[in-house]
Amino acid sequence: MKNVMSNKFVITLYVLPALILILLLIYIPIVLTGYYGLMDWNGIGKMKFIGLDNYIELVKDKLFWQSTWHSLLLGLFSTVSLVGYLILSLILASKIKGANFLRKIYLIPMLLSSVAIGQLWAKIFDPTNGMINRLLIIFGVDNPPVWLADSKIALYALFFPIVWQYAGFYIIIFYAALKNVPEELIEAAKIDGATSIQIAYKIKLPLIAGVIKVMVILAIVGSLKYFDLIFVLTGGGPNHASEVMASYMYSEAFSKYNFGYGSAIGFGLLIICLVMTWLIQKLLSSKEVEF
């Protein structure tokens, strides 16, 4: 049987098309990004080779580390929110009435494009006419916060729409994973008198541990390179209070015409993602034993 499952020709046949595609369309850009990072280039006309200058500047750049910190916070926040999504998915995947209908509703925000979500949340956060502050004023708060305009709050306020936007994404995957858990195992546990919480903790979660791990990686890496709503809602402001790595990269490369430096930021982002993924793998593979 080993022979069938290790047929080199079949492996090549199955892997090669996708591999070629990502090597061409993702890895060449990655290498070029690193290469442009070695240049003094405004994106127009001649490049000048400056060695590692951009990378050295990057390591010393306070704004870069500040935006990295913001991205990491977003990653942490997204990871914590996974717990909530997991609980919701457990409820939806258990056989309660209306679960099917609720699940469909819960995923609707995911269908909206960032343009729409950005507009919606701009209206929610508006200091005067916005929904939150109108409610706060009704409840007697005289001086409600100005949300995205307050450099102390802006970043954290932004976390909510971002995390909310991806709720559907995680719920649908957790849900599909939970539906994959063999029914017989659950029935058997029920006969043994296990409560639903015990079943969830002892049977369901260990069985979908692999999926959970992938979701943690996706949540963190996705957060580290996150761009859309931050760009739409605050553009990284005020005063870089909500700047993340990708918005910083965009503003350097496309707004300030420092394409060389912007590329160095992009490459730095990639390296930080790799390090984080490696860390998560280490952390979670030791945890998995516990299950």
Binding site: A18, L19, I22, L23, L24, L25, I26, Y27, I28, P29, I30, L32, T33, Y36, G43, I217, L218, V221, L224, K225, F227, M245, A246, M249, Y250, A253, F254, F259, G262, S263, G266, F267, L269, L270, C273, L274, T277
Partner: peptide, 20 residues
């Protein structure tokens, strides 16, 4: 290799992809 492919910011790839 496939996983690392998820880690590049979209806007870094635009100019290289355009050239490709």
């Amino acid at each position: 290799l496939f996983m690392a492919g998820y880690m590049i910011p979209l806007h870094s790839t635009l100019i290289p992809l355009f050239n490709i």
